[in-house]
Simulated scan of single mutants.
Amino acid sequence: MPRTGVVVVGGGPSGLLAAMSAAQFSDVLLLEEHKTFGQPSHCGGLLSLDANEKLGVDIGKDLVLNSIRGFVFHSPSGFELEVDAGRPCAQVIERSLFDQHLAELAERRGCRLLNLRALSIRQRNGFAVVEAENGIEFSAQIAIDAEGIGRRLAAAAGFNSRVREAVPAAQVTVRCSEVDPSFAHVFLGELYGDLMAYTIPLDRRTARVGCATRRTDPARVCEMICKKFYGDYRPILSSRWAVWTGGPLKETRIGRIILVGDAAGHTKPTTGGGIVFGGIMARHAGSAAGKFASTLDEEKLAEMDENAKPMVRRMRRLLLARKLLSASSDRTLDRGIKIMGSRVEELRSLLRSTDFDFHENVLPDLLQALALTRIPIMLLADVLMRTFNY
């Protein structure tokens, strides 16, 4: 049975970043079931301008399709609130090329990458054992599960996967006669699902349109938005998947198995995006796993848990914001967005100074705006209770 220090299952951004971090201290093997890294691609691709610093990798200019300088928020009644930072505040990347770039970096840093599908992860005789297709088994000092939102391996290993809470999502890339490349659009309200819908411009003629909802078919919502805003559109790429907006799982490590990325619930609860949040947490996990594999010092894993606490708190605060939005009626959202519209200059200043990834610092403004719409106190209390006791 081949033996290694760290074995990583899953070749998305979280798995690759975990592998690179672990490779600083130990030998690393990564298993990816798809022959091409980054495929299939399920991502809006909107990142902060400093994502490379947070992830510890260089995002080359060839991976960036566009930069945006603001957002247009659409209320349920059709009121539009444009917030223009006046300068670039986020970037749009090509996700499939980004994953392939990370895979190349991982190999350069000494990781061994294999195209094999993992069938199970379990602990046996003091080791983490990954069973792969074709009857191949790999033994390691520690395993990192970055399999994604399906969490099939995690559930079999004893984790509470909560996978039924995932939200179905769809995205279509369209070509049309004209797209404003400077603004992404956010659509709120029951018509657009229990999370939101969005458009992200790639250039002056191409945009990504996406939606995540349990209430209806998200692909139909995408089609509705395309017909309304891009009347002459032509679909060129479509995809379906599921996003996680339920916050971090309470248990992400059992013995010598660590969950990272979507498998651990490490996504941004307000959008379901997982590149930056999952990547930061994966780097902590990979570093700890590599140190543990080389020393067998349990304190290294305890340090990982401690280092993760600030990010866990961030995700919980954003989970509160998401639940407030999901619990708000169309009437409440209309009034809230209109109230925010009377404070455009403040919002512009906030957008310029706010970290696009860590936007939980706008939560006080959101709470104030929603409070002004006279949300029933019992509803607000219920949302708060469900946030911290799910």
Rank of each mutant, 00 (worst) to 15 (best):
G272Q: 10
A106P: 02
D27I: 03
D194H: 12
D334Y: 00
F229A: 00
R240Q: 12
T173S: 08
E190M: 05
D50T: 10
L202N: 01
I149A: 14
V186F: 00
T267N: 06
P376I: 09
E137M: 08
G60F: 05
N52D: 15
R112I: 14
V57M: 04
G286H: 04
L296K: 14
S26E: 13
G110A: 02
L17E: 08
K227N: 13
S294Q: 10
L153A: 07
R112T: 15
S182Q: 13
V92H: 03
V6Y: 11
A128V: 07
G255S: 01
G86H: 02
R214S: 11
V179T: 01
R122T: 14
A264K: 07
M1K: 06
V243Y: 04
F71N: 02
A285R: 12
A18G: 09
L380M: 14
E32T: 04
A308Y: 07
N361H: 12
I68G: 00
A219E: 15
I236D: 02
F183S: 00
P218A: 01
L105Y: 04
R162G: 06
G341F: 05
R151Q: 12
R322H: 12
T373C: 14
L319K: 15
P310N: 08
R256K: 14
S353D: 15
S342H: 13
R208K: 15
F79V: 06
D180Y: 03
L372R: 13
D330Y: 09
S177W: 06
F79M: 05
A219F: 08
L333A: 01
L301H: 05
K228I: 05
V276G: 07
T4F: 10
A263W: 05
L63A: 04
L119V: 07
D357E: 15
K309R: 15
E165P: 02
L379Q: 14
L97P: 02
Q91K: 13
I257G: 00
L379G: 00
L119N: 11
V221R: 08
A155W: 06
A293Q: 12
L351R: 13
R220L: 15
A285V: 03
A51K: 06
A22H: 09
L380F: 15
V167S: 10
F71D: 01
D145E: 11
K338N: 03
A85S: 13
M20I: 08
A166W: 07
C111A: 14
V186H: 00
G193T: 01
R348A: 01
E82Q: 09
T199R: 00
A282E: 10
A85E: 10
I375V: 15
P40S: 05
F159C: 04
E345I: 04
R316T: 12
R322V: 03
F183V: 01
V72R: 11
F79H: 13
S328I: 07
I225L: 14
L318R: 12
V172S: 05
V172C: 06
G255D: 10
A369E: 06
R108P: 03
T332K: 04
M304V: 02
A19H: 09
E131V: 12
S26G: 05
A327H: 01
G38Y: 11
L384S: 11
E306D: 12
E147R: 04
Q123M: 12
R108L: 08
D232G: 02
R95S: 09
M196V: 05
R117T: 01
A381H: 04
R374A: 13
